[in-house]
């Protein structure tokens, strides 16, 4: 605003006015944008290019779809897909059920106990995957003095070579996931359960609804958004399962626990074939996107947001 008596100043050029008004805002936005460009977009694009190349640190060679054709003809690639799918199907739904049951019981508790269990069950999510894997290595100790084998011994069952044989290796990793981190899921479920108005249950009480009816007709449908969220994110993480494989079995024995993510790691950092690793990564990404979209399409039709 200029007063009528003030000397008219020359209007500054448009770009200077723009800088003065918005300069700081853009400067602040620039930081995360740069980070994104350098550490996300650039690697993705260069990996995409790399997936059509025979990688060499000095000079990569353009080889078209060779990485992709090699990958699809590779038995181990198909085996890793199979392992990943089995792992996902065996862990995600059951883990959601376990999480739900835990949350359901914690929800009935007094708030002091709620806090205790929330904290306790969340701990594994805070601990590093490496640490947890080390603990599990001890539990899966194949000698008769291993933790799980001692337990089996009480029932007269012979020691099991948990991680050392194809029969039980993948199952062992699955078992580890069941007893792993339900913490964040529990917290989401608890929040969602707390968000259901109590009066709905009172109305249902008056409406002659049994406890089971209240559960199937009110609680479960109203928790569907949470369940869907846990399902989609669970599938995505499970497709990328890596740390436990790397720490405990290195994909073996005989590729019994080689998952896609582990295969990608091997291609890249064991065989230094970054071109192949990139191609495998893009296939994994495409897979995850397709599965996620399908899940949303299938399950979200009757979800209330």
């Amino acid at each position: 605003m200029q007063l009528a008596t003030a000397k008219p100043k020359p209007t500054p050029p448009a770009y200077r006015r723009f800088l003065r008004d918005y300069g700081w805002a853009y400067l602040f936005i620039l930081a995360p944008v740069l980070l994104f460009l350098v550490f996300t977009l650039y690697p993705v694009i260069s990996a995409f290019i790399m997936s059509f190349q025979k990688y060499n640190i000095m000079k990569s060679k353009w080889i078209g779809f060779d990485n992709y054709t090699y990958m699809f003809q590779d038995d181990i690639f198909w085996k890793s897909i199979k392992n990943t799918v089995i792992f996902t199907l065996a862990t995600v739904p059951i883990n959601i059920i376990i999480t739900f049951i835990l949350a359901f019981f914690i929800f009935q508790m007094k708030s002091r106990w709620q806090t205790f269990f929330k904290a306790t069950l969340y701990l594994p999510s805070v601990a590093s995957g490496v640490t947890i894997s080390l603990v599990w290595l001890a539990m899966f100790d194949p000698t008769s003095s291993g933790l799980l084998n001692t337990f089996l011994g009480w029932f007269g069952i012979d020691p099991v070579i948990w991680l050392g044989q194809s029969k039980t290796a993948l199952f062992s990793l699955i078992l580890m996931s069941y007893l792993g981190s339900h913490g964040s899921g529990i917290i989401l479920y608890l929040a969602a359960m707390g968000g259901i108005p109590k009066s709905l249950y009172e109305a249902a009480d008056i409406d002659h609804a049994s406890g089971w009816t209240q559960f199937t007709k009110i609680t479960w449908p109203l928790l569907k958004p949470t369940t869907l969220y846990l399902l989609v994110t669970g599938v995505i993480t499970s497709f990328q399962v890596f740390i436990s494989v790397y720490m405990m079995t290195q994909g073996g024995p005989n590729f019994a626990t080689t998952t896609i993510a582990y295969l990608i790691y091997e291609s890249a950092f064991v065989f230094y074939d970054f071109g192949l690793a990139s191609a495998q990564s893009f296939v994994l990404a495409a897979f995850i996107i397709i599965v996620s979209v399908v899940q949303f399409k299938f399950f979200s039709s009757d979800v209330e947001y």
């Binding site: 108005p197 009066s199 709905l200 009172e202 109305a203 249902a204 008056i206 409406d207 002659h208 609804a209 049994s210 009816t213 007709k217 009110i218 449908p221 109203l222 009757d302 209330e304």
Partner: peptide, 26 residues
Amino acid sequence: IAMVFQDYALYPHMTIRENLSFGLKN
């Protein structure tokens, strides 16, 4: 008895028909 709650306590995921018939179905 039947009760009308201050916040109505309608079942949000059910249609009005389902809301009305819930008690009778039970």
